[in-house]
Nucleic acid binder design. Structure first.
Lengths: 89, 89
DNA sequence: TCAATACATCGAAATATTTCGATGTATTAT
DNA sequence: ATAATACATCGAAATATTTCGATGTATTGA
């Protein structure tokens, strides 16, 4: 268990906009950045900022092909977090 | 699933000091506030602040008897968080 | 090549968080 | 009653985060 990994992931999803982005990507399976503006009414630079935090924390997987970024959930990280909290219960 | 509950709990453990407090309480089973100062080298008001955030988020259970506060992990919340991330994986 | 699209980055403003010293309050021991 | 202990609260300073408009970069279509 690496506490800094947990803290960073927790920080990533502690913002309501970032959590909403995560949940939407889970729901849809995948997402490009442009989709997020309709979900959150955030400006494009703000979306870019939040996505970067989620990606840097390992919560989302970033895959740029051409000029679009496909975002998907990092299921391994979700499993890791689930197991972490399981261990605390 | 209430996103605000998740966001608040995630925020509570996103700080390295608060995560360290949580892990120490898990390890020891219980903890009074005074114990935390030796763990983190934080000032007493800072500890009080961080503990309040953890308690308000439902991560820790607060039980004051006399002048000491016993802190324990809220295992129900840990289970809830585990299940939440399980659902995202 | 030129224009449009999809994001990224920058600098600055607004806001929130963390931390402290000082002080307050309730409880316990003497 | 007095003093000590265990926390809580307050106001302020330092720092971090969020957000924006402006601009930059890479890619695609006409």
């Amino acid at each position: 268990m690496d506490a800094s990994v947990i803290a960073k992931a927790a920080n990533a999803i502690s913002d309501r906009h970032r959590l909403a982005i995560l949940l939407e990507i889970v729901r849809k399976g995948t997402c490009v950045c442009a989709d997020i503006s309709q979900l959150t009414r955030l400006s494009q630079p703000a979306i870019s900022h939040h996505v970067k935090i989620l990606v840097d924390a390992g919560v989302l997987i970033y895959d740029k092909t051409g000029r679009t970024v496909q975002l998907t959930v990092n299921r391994e990280m979700m499993k890791y977090l689930s197991a972490f909290f399981q261990g605390l219960s």
